[in-house]
Simulated assay, not measured.
Amino acid sequence: MSDTMPINPVATAPPSYTESQAQPQANVARVTEAKPYAARAPKDAPPPYDYPEQSPSSGYQRFDTSSGRRVGVVTVIELGPEPCYLQCPSCGNFIYTDTVYKTGALTCIASALCFFFCIICTCLPCFVKDCLDVDHYCPRCNYCFGTFTRL
């Protein structure tokens, strides 16, 4: 490069609207409007999938957009007689639940039946785990998830 050549050449202004209309340009590529995806899809394609609207009862959280607060949270956890692996809503940890056995309706019914057949065996259902209800607790914060009832 020479010292006389400017670094930034002076740009010329584009033609005005009236000038561009007076002199049509040749070989101008014609721009077509883009078609939406549904119009470009092949004829044998399946219809697009519409996601169903989720309700808060399905375990999802719904927020009030104006204040950012939670409006309602419903989480359905199916508890059984065995400890289960889940996330504690209180402390947020993934844990196996602690189970605590307690007497319930089935224990009382089984004890009444044992009383009629053998008085000595009346308290036997209180020691059989298959007759007791099960409470599920978080081992870290003692949050109670719920109770599995036999009846």
Rank of each mutant, 00 (worst) to 15 (best):
Q21H: 10
S55H: 13
Q25D: 04
P81Y: 09
D3T: 02
Q25R: 13
A13Q: 05
L106Y: 05
A22E: 08
E78M: 08
A11S: 12
A39P: 03
Q23V: 13
N93L: 14
A41F: 02
A11W: 04
R30Q: 15
N27C: 03
G72S: 14
A34F: 12
V74P: 00
P24N: 01
Q25Y: 08
Q87M: 09
E53D: 12
R70Y: 06
V74N: 12
S20M: 09
Y60Q: 15
V73P: 00
R70M: 13
P6D: 08
T32S: 10
T32M: 10
R40A: 11
K35V: 04
F94S: 12
E82W: 06
A22M: 04
V31W: 14
P89V: 06
L79R: 05
A11T: 05
P6L: 07
P36L: 07
E78Q: 10
P48M: 01
T12R: 05
A11R: 09
P48S: 01
V76H: 15
Y51P: 00
L106C: 03
S90C: 08
A105D: 09
P24V: 00
T4K: 14
T97C: 06
G92C: 07
Y101I: 02
T65I: 12
L86W: 06
P83F: 05
Y101R: 12
D64H: 03
C88N: 10
A22P: 01
I77C: 03
K35D: 02
T12G: 07
Y101W: 09
A39M: 08
V100R: 07
E33T: 15
E19T: 00
V31Y: 11
P14K: 06
S58N: 15
K43N: 09
A29V: 12
G68L: 10
P24Q: 01
V74T: 14
A38M: 13
G80V: 09
E53W: 04
G104E: 01
K102D: 04
F94D: 11
I77M: 07
Q25F: 05
A11P: 00
V28G: 03
A41N: 01
G80Y: 12
R40Q: 15
Q25K: 11
A13H: 08
N27Y: 14
V74I: 14
R69I: 03
L106K: 13
P15V: 08
Y17A: 13
T65Q: 14
I7D: 11
D98W: 04
N93G: 08
Y51T: 02
D44I: 06
E19N: 05
A41V: 07
Q61T: 13
P15W: 02
A39D: 12
N93D: 15
L86D: 02
P52I: 08
D64P: 00
V31Q: 10
R40P: 00
F63T: 14
L79S: 03
P81C: 08
I95D: 01
P46I: 03
V10A: 01
S66K: 14
I77F: 07
P42M: 10
E82F: 05
D98G: 00
Y17C: 07
P24R: 02
